[in-house]
């Protein structure tokens, strides 16, 4: 079993040429992971809880203007700046390359969020509220976080666990594409690909070798597990 575990290194490729910025991934993530609603006032104070957001950048001025979209989520860095600063080891690194967050260890210092260069960690300033019967939609496979706890993208670890368990029950190795985080599963233009980077034949590993590859803020040495593929098409700019 440990052999099988060593063979896994989860990674994601986001093709910015396919991404249309539609936001389907944002809602899919919120639905899958019981991400709480905060309302307009708290949102305005920067207390949004989305684990995945789509950044939009303007480039140029009218009429030669374009907008670019970058889905931004936890990069699951191999050298994660959020991990060493946690005084209670709530932020840890798992053997499969996931940057984990142990909710019941977290004491809410928010050091990790301070140290994250991608600003993808979010903090529960309040206990989440789901007016009944809205609570019935909650995904039973995912913990509901309480006040004072830091949270962020987990690469849908509950789906990874589920797929590993069913593979084990059927006595077979995990298949490529068997694990799909909610964002990748729903992405209409197919911009998000998830899989095992250690398997050179997996779709994610093949795409990650693309000449269009780049990793965000790579010069910080964070070694992210998310690889972006550059968008094309600068025809009318400049």
């Amino acid at each position: 079993m440990s052999e099988a575990t060593d063979q896994l290194r989860w990674g994601m490729v986001i093709d910015l040429d396919r991404c249309t910025g539609c936001g389907a991934c944002v809602t899919a993530c919120q639905a899958e992971n019981n991400v709480a609603l905060v309302g307009k006032e708290e949102f305005g104070k920067g207390r949004n809880l989305h684990w995945l957001r789509v950044e939009r950048y303007w480039e140029g001025e009218f009429p030669h203007v374009r907008a670019r979209f970058v889905p931004m989520l936890c990069q699951h860095c191999a050298d994660a700046p959020c991990e060493p600063v946690c005084p209670v080891y709530a932020s840890y690194h798992n053997p499969e390359g996931l940057n984990g967050q142990v909710y019941n260890r977290c004491v809410g210092t928010r050091y990790c969020a301070n140290n994250c260069p991608y600003a993808v960690r979010v903090f529960n300033f309040f206990n989440p509220e789901w007016p009944q019967p809205l609570d019935q939609q909650l995904n039973p496979d995912v913990t509901v976080r309480s006040r004072g706890v830091m949270e962020k993208c987990t690469f849908c670890i509950q789906r990874i666990r589920g797929a590993k368990e069913s593979a084990k029950l059927e006595g077979r190795p995990l298949r490529d594409g068997e694990v799909q985080p909610a964002c990748a599963q729903t992405c209409p233009p197919g911009a998000i690909i998830f899989g095992n980077l250690n398997d050179p034949d997996s779709q994610v590993a093949r795409l990650a070798r693309s000449p269009r590859r780049l990793r965000l803020l790579e010069d910080l040495g964070t070694e992210p597990s998310v690889v972006y593929l550059k968008g094309g098409g600068h025809e009318h700019v400049g």
Binding site: C22, T27, L138, P188, G190
Partner: peptide, 26 residues
């Protein structure tokens, strides 16, 4: 209870994909 809505991969229109409005059916 209905927990999560995904696209149906066998449907010829959306092939397993879904937009935010469809996700929000729950």
């Amino acid at each position: 209870r209905a927990r999560k809505v995904e696209g149906n991969p066998r449907h010829p229109i959306n092939r397993g994909k879904l937009c935010p409005r469809g996700q929000s059916l729950v």
